[in-house]
Design a protein around this nucleic acid. Structure first.
Length: 483
RNA sequence: GGCCCAUUCGUCUAUCGGUUAGGACAUAAGAUUCUCAUUCUUAAAAGAGGAGUUCGAUUCUCCUAUGGGCUACCA
């Protein structure tokens, strides 16, 4: 006895997890968990042509990494298995034949390509085999002719259903194709399998992308043909990408990273990805924007889902990610960021801890790190113009003076660490009646060759060491003098 | 082509007939900071167009436009 909420995520294993699919999984998971219900994973691998080795593993790994844990599924079992469609072949056949018996479906012996009995037609299948006599069917079957089973759509009237997001949707039955239920290889199409499985697995709320909205009346007709109860429907607005010409289209590779794995490789945190995509098409109706998974479950509600497609915005993702990075305990950040830093086999490795401290509040994603710290390995060419800065009243003349004094100061510093450096430079600024910022601008430029750096001048000095610091300060001074 | 759906700042969104149309990202300016960044303050920025219904429409209805989805022996 259970009237508990049951939702499912039913990906087709393609070898990667598209961000739109991940969001569907997330919403189905959030809704189930917010209702104390169950979340089921089902693998929809009925398309043999698209079979990809190891693709189901990607599904498991992604869901695990994203903390979207299912309660039932191929890998962990459950009371309604098997959860992989290719293992349910006999079930679909049985139900398809039941529909044929009831007169809601029929055998079709038409060939896929050309020929007289072809279904080729711009208006869809011409229903050639819809009214074959029992004898004709039987003789074709005996002759071992390949066949498919098609749904016999009503020719009149209309079919409607109520979507929890989109509301009442009605379609005229005559616009519906006699779609294929069972393919000639004996496997079901998605259109058939999803209905049979959702029923057998006792799914109460079907959550999926809105690309299925217009086919849903066909599924409704299937439920009715079987005499089954119809589940609740929640169709989600699509996630789209913005093209260079300003138009939008279904999010794809040309827009940037579109799979969970791509985003991870780019240095985004799973928690940030969840957080961001949860907000694409759903609003918590509060001003809170940064959520942990627990908070999402707590806040999730169906009436926050909206209907219009949402553009995937990498800039906002960056911001959400930076907020999640700042929330990380330092040790966690440090160990996660290290592999991205490419610092392991360099002389910066033993300075990693210091680096991590200044990196954590500054970066949006881990992949930014190598470019940010490259100047520590090697000082690039830079323009003397950088020494000129209005805000800090820095000119080439003042810079010459300051760098000369800085070099002098540096010589006499005994302990080469940030605090000692700060003390010495603070003294220097006071002695010369300069604001700290005024003093440090040219110093930082000479040390880094960059207008924006992770960390200030003293932190940079401490990391690159005394000799290298002196060399770079001298270099800067010479550049100005030769200018 | 047919069918279905959508349309509030550049972007994500709030508003469930009466608001100076709110927030966030991005952008710009300023302040703070031991330098850049962080942080803080401020600014600029929106109801696709046209008819209705109504005392009153961003909100309800219709039309148009634009965009998207479906129309496979893919899901």
């Amino acid at each position: 006895m259970t009237n508990n909420v049951r939702t499912r995520f039913a990906p087709s294993p393609t070898g990667y997890m598209h961000i739109g699919n991940l969001r569907t999984a997330l919403y189905a998971f959030l809704f189930a968990k917010s209702q104390k219900g169950s979340f089921v994973l089902r693998i929809e691998d009925t398309d043999q042509k698209r079979y990809v080795e190891g693709a189901t593993r990607v599904v498991y790994e992604t869901l695990k990494a994203a903390q979207i844990q299912h309660d039932e599924g191929p890998d962990i079992g459950g009371n309604y298995g098997p959860y992989t469609q290719s293992e349910r072949k006999d079930i679909y056949k049985k139900y398809a034949l039941e529909l044929v018996d009831k007169g809601h479906a029929y055998y079709c012996f038409c060939q896929k390509d050309g020929s007289e009995n072809s279904e080729a037609s711009k208006e869809g299948y011409n229903r050639h085999c819809r009214n074959l006599s029992k004898e004709e069917v039987q003789s074709n079957l005996s002759a071992d002719k390949p066949f498919v089973i098609r749904q016999k759509m009503p020719l009149e009237g209309e079919t409607s259903f109520n979507d929890l997001v989109f509301g009442e949707i009605a379609v005229e039955n005559k616009t519906l194709d006699d779609q294929i239920l069972l393919k000639s290889d004996g496997l079901p199409t998605y259109n058939f399998a999803n209905v049979v499985d959702d029923y057998l697995m006792k799914i109460t709320h079907v959550i999926r992308g809105s690309e299925y909205l217009s086919s849903n009346p066909k599924y409704i007709l299937l439920y009715r043909a079987f005499g089954w109860d119809i589940p609740s429907y929640i169709h989600l607005p699509l996630i789209v990408g913005k093209n260079d010409d300003g138009t939008v289209s279904k999010l794809s590779k040309r827009h940037g990273a579109v799979s969970f794995q791509d985003l991870i490789n780019d240095g985004y945190l799973p928690s940030a990805i969840n957080n961001y995509i949860s907000l694409l098409g759903w609003s918590p109706k509060s001003e809170k924007e940064i959520f942990s998974m627990e908070e999402l479950i707590e806040a999730f509600s169906l009436n926050g889902i909206n209907k219009s497609p949402a553009i995937f915005d990498y800039q906002k993702l960056d911001w959400v990610n930076s907020e999640h990075i700042k929330l990380l305990p330092f040790e966690t950040f440090s160990s996660m960021a290290f592999p991205y830093s490419k610092v392991e086999k360099t002389n910066l490795a033993h300075k990693w801890n210091e680096l991590a401290v200044i990196l954590q509040p500054r970066i949006h994603k881990f992949s930014e790190i190598p470019a940010l710290i490259h100047f520590l390995h090697q000082l690039g060419n830079y323009s003397v113009e950088l020494f000129i800065n209005k805000k800090n009243k820095s000119t080439l003349e003042t810079s010459t003076d300051i760098l000369t004094k800085a070099l002098e100061t540096v010589k006499h510093i005994g302990s080469w660490e940030v605090n000692a450096l700060n003390i010495s430079f603070t003294e220097l600024s006071e002695k010369n009646d300069l604001k700290f910022g005024q003093l440090m601008w040219p110093v930082r430029i000479a040390l880094s060759g960059l207008a924006v750096t992770p960390g200030g001048a003293t932190e940079i000095m401490s990391i690159i060491g005394k000799e290298e610091s002196k060399r770079r300060l001298n270099l800067g001074l010479k550049m100005i003098q030769n200018h």
